[in-house]
Design a protein around this nucleic acid. Sequence first.
DNA 1: TCGCGCTATGACAACGTTATCTTATCGGCC
DNA 2: GGCCGATAAGATAACGTTGTCATAGCGCGA
Lengths: 334, 334
Amino acid sequence: MTRATIKDVSRVAGVSIKTVSRVLNKERYVSDDMRQKVEEAVARLNYHPSLAARTLAGRRSFQIGLIHDNPSPYYIFNMQAGVGQRCREANFRMIIQPCDINSPGLVDDIGALIDQAQLDGIIMTPPVTDVGTALAELFRRKIPVVRVQPGTDLTATSAVYIDNVQAADDMTAYLISLGHRRIGLVTGHANYFASGQRLTGYRQALQRAGIGFDAALVQPGQFDFQSGAAAAEALLALAEPPTAIFASSDEMAAGVLAAAHRLGVSVPEQLSVAGFDDTDLAQVVWPSLTTIRQPIRDLGYAAADLLLEFGETIERRQLPHELIVRGSTAGPKT
Amino acid sequence: MTRATIKDVSRVAGVSIKTVSRVLNKERYVSDDMRQKVEEAVARLNYHPSLAARTLAGRRSFQIGLIHDNPSPYYIFNMQAGVGQRCREANFRMIIQPCDINSPGLVDDIGALIDQAQLDGIIMTPPVTDVGTALAELFRRKIPVVRVQPGTDLTATSAVYIDNVQAADDMTAYLISLGHRRIGLVTGHANYFASGQRLTGYRQALQRAGIGFDAALVQPGQFDFQSGAAAAEALLALAEPPTAIFASSDEMAAGVLAAAHRLGVSVPEQLSVAGFDDTDLAQVVWPSLTTIRQPIRDLGYAAADLLLEFGETIERRQLPHELIVRGSTAGPKT
DNA sequence: TCGCGCTATGACAACGTTATCTTATCGGCC
DNA sequence: GGCCGATAAGATAACGTTGTCATAGCGCGA
């Protein structure tokens, strides 16, 4: 027994091949009578159209690509879940392409992917979103692109994002409202524009509260555990250490927690710690993290939605973030 | 400018279409002269063959599927990384199919996937590996299958796995060697055969050391944080609580740590905690976890390797695990 | 009554590869 | 010298869909 083809369906239904194709593609000009006959035949034969043949004959491949260079399992997992969900709803397939933004072959790899699979669209996550040469290649091929949280050429492609400045402002303002005046910030990797945006939000909230900006309280990080721990050690070694540390990612916040544990600084009694992202990690460390919920899964879903609904038409969608208060923050010791 | 086709290549190279195809597929009976001409033309035109056309015309699709129903971001991320790596080396593509083992549509979904994409092979991870109806569907279609850590029908398909019994034995023996006599075990989800195997290893090590088995020390878990925390609370509430707790996953071990923190039990001074998997999580909690390193990425790589190298021929490959000692374990307080 | 536009259906080419079959050339061996 | 097998190359038919064009019926206004 071999796979059923459209020809088999047409024979069983007693109609032409083209009519079957019309029903499958929900085209106009098909009578209810025909539609029903075809649908019955499809069900009876358990027929599934060949994607390869559809791609070859038509101008669509029913596939979109997700290009990323992001080492965070949580981020990628949730992004994939969101994109995958929307793809499934539309009966599309998602091709995952990890890459290395520093590789000289990056542009060729992307081109090869699009050529070989004839993708209908591309979704990119930071930091690939801001690699000019890669973007140029996509424009050259006139393929629809949606970027997640892009940092450059904001209006060049469709995009989904959250308001990072406001989010960091919210968190900083919350810490201030608890009574903190000396608040440390661990910034993110320089490749990510969100890092700078979060710094901006932090400064913005300080200024509004009339708290002077102290550059010594800002430590560079790379979004990972190690750099978070290192930054915390540097901050806690200051002559006048902060009473709260705001890390630009949950992973770094976990690093801050570990450093505090190691140094015997109790959280949140002696030090408040805040993260960013609200990945699963935030609830798995102890104490659980006060953080900004970034709806990564929803961002993925929205990105795929823009691609499927609007295609080349440029659209933008901002998603809401949310301040999540858990056990890692409290007022400063008096 | 439109995509280059094999026809363009043949024109530029001054050879027939079939000869180009031969070179691309590394077939025999091509002179060096021809090969070189073709390769030059391919490079000059930046030609990439259409996967759709290759799939339609040939009997291979250059695509394999990865089917999973696993909620752990770390596990999936690493598995994908391993499979993806091997696929890239072979210029194959990986199609990810999350699923729900309790869904009545599971078998149909898998069938549809295979039909539509004409997959060359399937990789499954637990617990999908042991769903009889799904396996039967795959056999019916005679598609090569590799299962990761299967629990049933061990010889029915190719498989990659670690020795879970030995691994749990190793960890238990290590805890015993530290001086622990009362060792709690948090088991994994009942859907996973590895859960039972780890219990077996635990009992095996106890018996060898002449320590009686106490059923009260074994608490059921589901591989997640919450169940780990709950199990720890139950264990620590015993009249004679354990001095060490071995959780069958790092997530559950994190839950044990959180429960201990909450109850004011210091780790590892008053309680040793051990995990299983050595996902990134193990190094992100505090104190960092003593655990068994399960080479998830390598398992993925090996699974794809078996698929690509052996196809339908059944092969098995066992990968080594490793005991990783970190800060969460120590001798019991005297 | 004619012709026009809309609906509904089908015949057939086209998509870009691989598979199959055929042909041509070259040595070596009886 | 003729025949055979091995090598090298090409012509042409698939593969299973969608796109394009043709055709037929029907209602409606001129």
